[in-house]
Nucleic acid binder design. Structure first.
Lengths: 165, 165
DNA sequence: CATATTAAGTCAGCTTTGTTGACATTCCAA
DNA sequence: TTGGAATGTCAACAAAGCTGACTTAATATG
């Protein structure tokens, strides 16, 4: 169990270490979604609604196609979710001005309120974990997560960090 | 973008930093499951089967109840998955010797072969990410993931690392 | 020993969220 | 101007979760 750091020691790449990382990822993801899930369970929405709301809040005016690429589901699947959100007055869909095939999505006041509620819960856990682990651990956490992404999603992740489409 | 570490700087806890962490977690989890998913899509199994196979391989002879607690699903849901795996000859269920109510689950040769195939794919990505990020980043990654788990799952995670039940 | 509890499994039915296939509308380029 | 590409919608189906009610067998307990 010796602490090791810097160049040459490759013990962190053993199958056992990798398996522990895989299980940590599995258990942590459960914690990651637990709080929003609890809130969503009290209403008629699920995790898919949360994801849509999150990325609409993130990039107001985004198109359905854009959202599709980020979420990685079929448009039919996303459409079902969007339809209920629009019917319930949480999301507004406006026909595009330059291209009338596109729909631009934004949150209504009610949608923004739900988004805040869900985000606050998820951020609270994230903040507690970050604080417990410390800034250096957080930097490592981010590095490994990024290296784990599929290349096209990594590009999307960077794009969404730097500018809104 | 100044590098900061040690005690006092709390800029890593801003809402924007937390949101980036949340999105990183979302995109990374997709990468995490992508390779096994591709393999599973070619046969009649899904992610639920993979999870069951993983933890049976991890703790051979584990009981149904044990698996239930680890996976966090209902027994009806797990049972559906286990039934197909047993019917297909990937998992063996043996009546317990000391407590005959219990069923002890193990992988058959065929089950172990599939487990290896899935693990190898998932570990390959994990290994690449670990190698790219380096040992110190990996340590931080593990710390943050652990801090994110629900307490009872964190205990389970530690238990499974140290000894088999 | 009688009874309560536990472990496992089953049946039925429902919900969420993914999938394909077919189709309407809009735009653009040959 | 017309045919294809892009965008979005509707319908039907599948995987995998869920609840609730129940059975069977074995163990624990009063």
């Amino acid at each position: 169990m010796a602490e090791m750091h810097g160049g040459e020691n490759l013990l962190f790449l053993t199958d056992e270490q990798l398996r522990q990382g895989i299980e940590a990822m599995f258990f942590a993801y459960r914690g990651f979604t637990a709080d929003p899930d609890r809130i969503l369970a009290t209403m008629a929405y699920g995790r898919a609604h949360h994801r849509a709301i999150h990325f609409i809040a993130r990039s107001p005016g985004t198109t359905v196609n854009n959202l599709l690429a980020i979420l990685g589901v079929t448009k039919q699947s996303l459409n079902r979710v969007l339809r209920t959100l629009i019917e319930d007055g949480l999301v507004e869909s406006r026909v595009g001005t330059t291209d009338k095939r596109e729909r631009h999505l934004t949150l209504t006041e009610a949608g923004a309120a739900l988004e805040r509620k869900l985000s606050d819960a998820q951020r609270a856990r994230m903040r507690a974990a970050y604080r417990a682990a410390g800034p250096q651990a957080v930097a490592g956490f981010r590095q490994v997560l990024e290296a784990m992404m599929e290349p096209d999603l990594r590009r999307r992740y960077h794009a969404i960090r730097e500018s809104d489409t």
